[in-house]
Structures are given as C-alpha cells and as structure tokens.
Design a protein around this nucleic acid. Structure first.
Length: 485
RNA sequence: GCCGGGGUGACAGAGAGGCCAUGUGGCGGACUGCAGAUCCGCAGACAGGAGUUCAAAUCUCCUUCCCGGCCCCA
C-alpha cells in the first residue's frame, strides 16, 4: 500500500516516490526571527514534525532541513527600535524558538541553516543567474527577470499579466518589470551587509531557500513544505530562480499546512490576534497543544478559540485514562485475551490513515477505537497480562509519532489494605500541605475503611482534602485507584 | 479584480458516489453510598438551486457566503 500525499503543484494526491529509493530530502521553510513564535508557528512545526516522524516510521531515511531567516527588513527595523544589533536580535529569537519547540516536543530537524551562514552560496547563485542573463544588476541590487522565466505561475496558477493588473506592486524601485523581485538587496548606509560583486548588500528573501536547498539537499528536493501563505510569491519565486539556474525540477512534492485561525481569520502579528507559544504553555500542557493540532488535517485551516484547548484537554484525557488504566491493570491482569488481532487491526488501520496524506485526524479516531476496545476487555476481565502489554506497546508505538500521551509521571496507584491510622494521625495527615505518596496511600486506605463503615461523611472529607491537593480518587471494582493530576 | 481553498450535527473536525466517522457536549441505561472513570444505547449534518446516476455530503453547472494569496508572513 503506497504512501500518498497531496501535492500543491498538481493539486491532487499522488503516490510518494522520492528521487533516491528509501531516502527523503525535505526542506521546510522556517521562520523569520524578528519576534517570539506564536501558536501558528507551532502548528506548522508540529504538522511537519509528524510528517518527518511518520516517514521515518515507514522506514525512510529523512534529511530534514529547516531554515532561519535571520536577516531581513523586519529584523533590521525591530533591532533599530530596540537599539540592539540585528544579528543579536535574531540570535535571541532563535534561542526562543528552540526553547518553545523543544517544550512542545517538536523533533529537531537534521539541519537548521541560517541565511547569514549561507551568504557565499547565495552570492554564487546570484552570480550564476546574472551570468545566464536571468537576473540583472541595478543600483547595487540584483533582480530576477520574471519575463525571462518559462512557465511562470506553475505553483500558484497566477499569470504575470493577471498579477500586474491587480497588484499593489511598488514601481518606484529600480526594476525593469514591476514583478521582478530582488535576489540581492543593496545595503543602505549603516545596515548589516556582506560584500558582493555588486557592492555591499544582503540576500533577497526567496533566494536563501533556493541556496539552502541546493547546498544541503541537492538540485531536486523530494518534499518542500511551508505554510499556505508562502505559496505565492515565495515558493513560486523559489521555483523560478532555482530552475532557471539548474535546469532541473526544484521540488517534486509541495506540501502546505493550513493556517491557524481565530474567528476564521489567520493568526498573525499584523492582525494582533496571536497567542505566543509561551502564553499558551502557561495554561496547557505540550500534549494538549499537540493533540489540538494533530486532531485535524494539516492541510486545512484550524480554528482556535477560547474553548478549543479546553476541549482538547478533555478529549485527550479519555486516551490518557485508557493508557494509564491499562498500565495499572498489568499488576492484576486476569483473562485470556492477548489482543493480538485487535492490535494488528488497529495498527493497519492507523497506517492506512497515515498513508493517506498523513490523515492524523482519522488516525486519532483509530486510537479512540483501540481505547474503547481495551477498556471493555479490562472491564470484563478478559484481557491477559500479555494482552495488556500488547496494547500498551501499541499505544507507545502510536505515541512515538504523536507524542500526546504522558508515559511517566502520571501513575495510577491502587491502594489496598487497612489504614494503620488513628483519629489523630488522620487529622495530622489531612492538615499537611504536601503529601508524599505514602501519605496519600494511607489516606486513601483510611477512606476505604470509612466507606466500609458506611461513614460517608468521613470518606468524602478525605476525598475532598485530596482533591484540593490535585489528587484524584476513583473507586473501581478492584479497589480505589488514585493519581496526581 | 485575479489565483487557490472552503461552507458537514450544539461545537471541533474527518470522509470525496452505495456502508459507522471520531471526539467534546446533550439525553437514556448499566455500574456506584455519592462522585468520577468506564461500558451500552439514543438524538442530531452535509450552504441554496438545478443536473448526471439505479444510488450524491461526495461528480457537473449556477447562485451565495467565508477564508488564504496578490507588500511582509508558518
């Protein structure tokens, strides 16, 4: 069964066939680091990280490159406002990006090249374009000549004449055609700049990605990704300049993630409707945020509102409970069912969904099915210890891709036996601020005793006291199970 | 204006010709001292209008509304 993915270039799903068997060169456009990252950037990173993880799960060797645009107009302007060095600003924002993404469990790319570290390659590329007559120098800047390019609009479906008609292009520059774009920008006095055959300057935005693809992956990348907002003009221009230079197809598959929206509008800095990753992490766990993102198709816009993470949190609890309960069940397994068939069915359905353009939403639905089935087997006492191990193993396997379940730190503890505690001991435990596990265990047992005596007031008092410290008790057929929330 | 993508139950969101999405929430039942968790069941949907087809949420056409892009942007 082949892996199929949606290719923006052809606007349809296609079987995935990399240039070199078993190997994938993947380039994903990264961020321009002039400010801290927001939830929309997190969506993009999580979406593409899942794609990388799944490709590896499928056995591909993936070379994943994501860049940092660490010098551009916005960075220079912001640095000026803050009276700091622009490269110091971008450096600190890159640190922030890594901090956020690490917390969100976004896997690291193979390489994170920066524009400022690729200047030589960029200059070489610009030179090559000028030599070929595809680009021209004008007042220290170099522009790509769009009229000379064949098949303009390959990716976006735009034609040049349409563009010029409705465009808000700036005609005041030194361009021969208003649609020409800068591949090298002449520096204004005092700006950060690098030497070049055309004088001091810095790279145009689009050229750095072309140069990095060429340098770190090759003339043809298998998968080129980014947000839908980059399709035009960024990716269109990357294709033009790269193919003009190499004569080879630049990217086989173009994948674009849908925007995160608020009130159906794109989350963005300019609309001031964004939430920083840090702000959201202060309220919700990385797992909840990941689940929110992965519980939807990467390609479509995803609506964020005040309740969306709360909903995700609740929905995820169902899966986490099933996982935790199955682990807790290991110690008291009774039953015959090894769940072999159930697990292999679930795995193949899961892969079938992921093979279909990384349909994580449907893959999540498979996890819910698995969880319901295992819950039933446990409740009916039909699951064997081996069966529980199989299911836990499968949850772990899925979680290796999604990373939405917490495997440690959230233990379910069954408390059995009678509490060795007198009234005074009980009161002193109830008064404690911090309760180590042994104390919790003692209180849970005391509550069990009280329930047996039908002293429900005392039992509820203990439950309330534990709840106030974030400890949750559940009475089950097999005794009381508690966990820290 | 032009180029893309969409409008699915209370909400979030899959699906792309025939079969169930799924989750949260709601309702009913089981279990329970209560609660929670869990299980079983129920309700509720495909923007509007034509057409193609034995069969359409899924294909075609029209209308309408929304979003993204056309300066920067994941």
């Amino acid at each position: 069964m082949p892996l199929v993915l949606y290719n923006t270039l052809t606007r349809r799903k296609e079987p995935f066939q990399p240039v070199r068997e078993g190997k994938v060169g993947m380039y994903v456009c990264g961020v321009t680091v002039y400010d801290k990252s927001h939830l929309g950037h997190a969506k993009s990173a999580i979406n593409f990280d899942l794609i990388v993880r799944y490709l590896r799960y499928r056995g591909y060797e993936v070379n994943h490159v994501t860049n940092f645009t660490d010098v551009d107009d916005k960075i220079i302007q912001r640095a000026k406002e803050l009276s700091i060095d622009p490269l110091a600003l971008s450096k600190s924002m890159i640190d922030d990006y890594f901090r956020s993404m690490d917390t969100l469990k976004v896997g690291r790319a193979t390489k994170y090249p920066k524009a400022t570290e690729t200047i030589d390659d960029i200059v070489g590329m610009v030179k090559g374009l000028v030599d070929k007559g595809m680009a021209y120098e004008s007042n220290g800047s170099v522009y790509f000549s769009v009229r000379k390019a064949e098949d303009y609009g390959k990716l976006s479906g735009q034609t040049l004449d349409q563009m010029v008609a409705g465009a808000r292009v700036d005609p005041s520059e030194d361009k021969r055609d208003p649609m020409d774009f800068a591949v090298w920008k002449a520096a204004k006095p005092g700006e950060v700049a690098w030497g070049s055959p055309w004088g001091k300057g810095r790279p145009g935005w689009h050229i750095e990605c072309s140069a990095m693809c060429l340098k770190h992956i090759g003339e043809t990348v298998d998968i080129h990704g980014g947000g839908t907002d980059l399709i035009f003009p960024h990716h269109e221009n990357e294709i033009l300049q790269s193919e003009a230079l190499t004569g080879k197809q630049f990217a086989r598959y173009w994948m674009h993630n849908g925007m995160l929206t608020i009130d159906e509008e794109k989350m963005s800095k300019s609309l001031k409707n964004f939430f920083l990753i840090d702000e959201v992490l202060a309220m919700y766990s990385p797992q909840v945020i990941r689940f929110f993102v992965l519980n939807a198709n990467y390609r479509h816009p995803l609506e964020y509102n005040s309740s969306s993470l709360e909903d995700s949190k609740r929905a995820l609890e169902t899966l986490q409970n099933s996982y935790d309960e199955t682990k807790a069940y290991l110690g008291r397994a009774r039953g015959e069912d090894d769940a072999e068939q159930m697990c292999s069915d679930a795995r193949s359905r899961f892969m079938e969904k992921m093979d279909d353009d990384f349909n994580s939403r449907d893959a999540v639905a498979v996890m819910y099915d698995l969880s319901r089935e295992v819950n039933r087997l446990r409740a009916e006492g039909r699951l064997s210890r081996k069966g529980a191990e199989n299911v836990i193993g499968l949850f772990d396997e899925f979680n290796g891709l999604f990373d939405v379940l917490v495997s440690e730190g959230q233990r379910n503890i069954v408390s059995e036996g009678v509490a060795d505690l007198d009234g005074e001991g009980l009161e002193s435990l109830l008064a404690k601020e911090e309760l180590p596990d042994a104390d919790v265990d003692m209180l849970v047992r005391a509550r069990q005793d009280a329930r047996k005596r039908k002293d429900f007031a005392a039992a509820d008092r203990i439950r309330d006291a534990l709840a106030a410290r974030g400890i949750d008790i559940q009475d089950t057929r097999d005794g009381a199970v508690w966990k820290r929330k």
